[in-house]
Amino acid sequence: MKNNIRDLRAEKQLTQGDLAEAVGVSRQTINAIEKEKFDPSLPTAFRIARLFGRTIEEVFRYEEV
């Protein structure tokens, strides 16, 4: 699943650690989501989208492999 978390994070000047603390996961998890190595659960995806004031579709994009 594609996402633009890195750009949104840069816009808000948040570090991976800041985002991880706000969402309630580890920094490694945020890193894995940003690198698209790990797809987050629906609650985590919603929390991330809400934190940036976006809808889930604006942050995450599903692409058929």
């Binding site: 309630g24 996961v25 580890s26 490694q28 998890t29 894995a32 790990f38 659960s41 985590t44």
Partner: peptide, 10 residues
């Protein structure tokens, strides 16, 4: 395990 986050648990 219940205290781990989703990636750690996976």
């Amino acid at each position: 395990m219940t205290l781990m986050d989703e990636l750690e648990r996976k």
